[in-house]
């Protein structure tokens, strides 16, 4: 479904991503792992169009999306969440998600009708799916960190995505919250038939939930394979897993 072919990106001579390769098949849940600064977020920014690569191609459903703008990529059904909380602080939870739906349906230019009548069912369904229905009318800025991270995912879902990119969905969460959040993602994946690409620091989470794993070190793809393959790979053990055990 998504193919990243030899993509590179450098900032002022620093190679953040170097000839990275990645394939995600439909319905898969793929994790990208690697030490801090390995270029995971940069890779996600390249796929979602915030950054443009220096070389390489990104193919989605057979179509070249390398140089599309973020909102064109959004309209293709690729939605993402962010590592840092990136919600609309002064809007309510409902409005946060509704805005995403409105934008997908190109209704943001409507000046005359009250917004509260638009896509109520769909928005509430998304809120119910992620478990934020009770917080419907809470202003997003007043939510707890964990709830804001969930809302972050809910906004991405508003775009009716087929392909979701989650940049450290559980960053800053407690162990219990992390489990809840990953179970939620697993549930959403089946309910909404999603293909998911995510990155994560917690190795238990990665090996517990991902179908396949891509390991990045210093911007390069070290290995791409199933959990077992990655676990057995000596290179990875040295380069990454060994380090994280210390």
């Amino acid at each position: 479904m998504l193919e990243v072919k030899g993509v590179s990106k450098s900032f002022d001579g620093f190679m953040a991503v170097s000839r990275a390769n990645l394939t995600v098949n439909k319905g898969e849940m793929v994790a990208v792992i690697g030490p801090n600064g390995a270029g995971k977020t940069t890779l996600f920014n390249l796929i979602s169009g915030i950054l443009k690569p220096d070389s390489g191609r990104i193919i989605y459903k057979g179509e070249d999306i390398t140089f599309l703008s973020p909102y064109e990529i959004f309209r293709k059904g690729i939605c993402r969440s962010f590592q840092i909380v990136n919600v609309f602080q002064r809007l309510t939870v409902f409005e946060n998600v509704q805005l995403s739906v409105l934008s997908r349906e190109k209704k943001t230019w409507n000046l005359l009708m009250p917004a509260k009548k638009f896509y109520v069912d769909e928005t509430e369904r998304i809120l119910e799916q992620v478990g934020l229905k009770e917080k419907r009318d809470t202003v997003a800025g007043f939510l707890s960190h964990g709830e804001q991270k969930i809302l972050e995912i809910a906004i991405a879902l508003g775009g009716k995505p087929e392909f979701v990119i989650l940049d450290e969905p559980t960053a800053g969460m407690s162990p219990e919250e992390t489990v809840m959040c990953m179970e939620l993602i697993k549930k959403l994946r089946h309910e909404m038939d999603l293909t998911i690409l995510f990155c994560e620091h917690d190795m238990d989470v990665v090996f517990g939930y991902a179908d396949r794993i891509m390991v990045m070190v210093r911007g390069e793809t070290v290995i791409e394979g199933t959990c077992d393959e990655v676990r057995c790979d000596t290179l990875v053990q040295e380069a990454y897993l060994g380090v994280s055990d210390e």
């Binding site: 962010f82 609309f88 946060n96 805005l99 943001t108």
Partner: peptide, 15 residues
Amino acid sequence: QGIRDNPVRCEMIGV
């Protein structure tokens, strides 16, 4: 109001 709160995110959801 979404743009006020977070213009970057707004761009990301296609606005």
